[in-house]
Design a protein around this nucleic acid. Structure first.
Lengths: 191, 191
DNA sequence: CTGCGAGTATACCGACCGTTATGGTTACCT
DNA sequence: AGGTAACCATAACGGTCGGTATACTCGCAG
């Protein structure tokens, strides 16, 4: 049986811990960041971390869930703040990704976490998979709203371009990856 | 100044070490695999590892370079063994990727290494970037041979689908990712 | 006044980290 | 015969790992 732990109570110190862990885990990787370092950056102690998050795995899952929430809100804000309609709304997601990746070259935090933890933490893997499925459904939903044919399959194909752009921009060091993604998306939307 | 170390002399023990490290690093991640574990799996001692590879970073770079060579040979063998011509040769690369990913769900070893090491090892990052550039040039070269317009830009766009398929298949847990990639590639090749 | 939850401070645990050292055993090359 | 390269075995180095224990202070609600 899979135990689903209750979410940690977000006391003030817990907030500082999660903020520090989010920055450190994303920037330096999860395995190479120890609990002592997180405690130091959060201005607290390991005792408080374990009181709030139970284990390193618990803190990692909280980090991934918070990051997913931030990222999804970022996309939804972009969509809500754009006058685009129809197929153009699909390009708004690419713009949101571009803005999200503007700072930093560390790539997708979820892919990075999967790279380190997929064989060691089922909970972390579950959060990563959920975020990737969210991307697929986001594009599929926009394709359906635009009245395009086979929106589910098209949404998955658009998600490939989305993920590929992150990889080629960061790990691949290809600075024009986002522009390439816009071209690829447009090519896939003209029938 | 950047020191380029000479490649390790591949004595019999060095071969076993590199084989063991390749399997362990890819399966469990690089940071979480220690030198003791590599020595144990290779049936040798840490002394011999350091005699042959100098440091953990040296062993990691050797792992990535060997993996890139294996992967590129895999693709070239697929291309050489296929009767396809023109744009169909681009799909052969997707078939080669499908076969390469048939076993395992650990995704792209280079992206995984980048996730763990990009802020800590310039040498490892250089090997990762070289492999991603190789993919872009591979597709661009096939696009040029097929007589397609703007082959460089098109090659980069095809590389996005390629990388995205790996991510969505493994981290995303989307089993139809390779079929989606074939559809996306075909959509991008009809003008 | 009391009890309690939250947080701080410090020390500790066994295990493992990357790295180096010492010493000895083969086997091949001159 | 002597040298050298490759390898094995054992141990140790200082440091960090995730996690636990003890003891303390503070603010607040009953």
């Amino acid at each position: 049986m899979t135990i689903t732990q209750e979410p940690p109570r977000m006391t003030p110190a817990a907030h500082r811990i999660l903020d520090a862990a989010s920055e450190l885990y994303y920037d330096r990787g999860i395995t190479s960041v120890g609990m002592d370092l997180v405690a130091e950056h959060a201005g607290t102690t390991k005792k408080t971390i374990y009181d709030r998050f139970g284990s390193k795995d618990g803190l990692v899952v909280a980090y991934l869930e918070a990051r997913a929430q931030r990222w999804q809100k970022h996309v939804e804000d972009h969509l809500a703040g754009s006058p685009a309609t129809g197929v153009e709304r699909i390009l708004v997601v690419v713009d949101a990704l571009d803005a999200w990746l503007a700072r930093g070259t560390r790539g997708c935090g979820f892919v990075n976490a999967y790279a380190e933890l997929s064989t060691q933490s089922a909970d972390a893997t579950r959060v990563v998979r959920a975020e990737k499925e969210w991307i697929r459904r986001l594009y599929a939903g926009l394709a359906a709203e635009a009245g395009l044919a086979a929106p589910e399959a098209l949404g998955r194909q658009l998600a490939l371009v989305h993920e590929g752009a992150i990889v080629q921009l960061t790990a691949g060091g290809s600075p024009e990856a986002l522009d390439d993604a816009r071209l690829a998306v447009r090519a896939m939307l003209v029938p």
